[in-house]
């Protein structure tokens, strides 16, 4: 019984609805510091989000009560989290270590982890991508990419 109830609360849509209600309520607090006319549109949207999320929550729980099994959001959650973590890691590395070193590492790394492992292909692809970025943006347009905060100070 408790197991079933916990499952009902862990349905993806239910979780999303609860998350939305919490987030929207949180954002509602700063609206009290605004002038009424400034607060009007954001507050309306946040209240709208809360009401709509409540509706979503109710309808999802009805479905659960009717015995419908919620589809899992991902068939391979590990891969999804891993992919997202790699992307975030790449952004942080660009910020701290610089764009070019991070990019040279990330292209073969992501490809290799997710199943493309031909060494020659990886070297060629990385060289072409990084080379053309450098040629077009850095050399051609004198665009600066992050040089890495660690080296700067």
């Amino acid at each position: 019984m408790t197991e079933a109830r916990r499952n009902r609360l862990l349905r993806p849509e239910t979780l999303t609805a609860i998350g939305l209600i919490v987030a929207a309520t949180g954002f509602l607090i700063p609206t009290f510091d605004l002038r009424p006319i400034s607060a009007l549109l954001p507050a309306a949207m946040l209240i709208g989000l809360i009401v709509l999320s409540a509706l979503l929550l109710v309808s999802d729980q009805r479905k659960a009560a009717a015995g419908e099994v919620a589809k899992p959001v991902s068939t391979a959650p590990g891969r999804v989290i891993g992919a997202f973590a790699l992307i975030v890691g790449y952004a942080v590395a660009t910020d701290l270590l610089g764009f070019y070193p991070s990019t040279i590492v990330i292209i073969p790394l992501v490809s290799a982890i997710f199943g493309y492992r031909s060494p020659l292909g990886l070297v060629i692809a990385t060289a072409i991508v990084v080379g053309s970025i450098w040629l077009i943006f850095d050399f051609g347009m004198s665009q600066d990419f992050p040089a890495g905060r660690l080296w700067q100070d």
């Binding site: 992501v110 490809s111 982890i113 997710f114 199943g115 943006f137």
Partner: peptide, 19 residues
């Protein structure tokens, strides 16, 4: 190959938004 395509798009996303 899909992993390679994915990783190239990641780099392009970063450049596009950063620029």
């Amino acid at each position: 190959p899909r992993p390679l395509l994915g990783s190239i798009i990641i780099v392009l996303m970063l450049i596009g938004v950063y620029s």
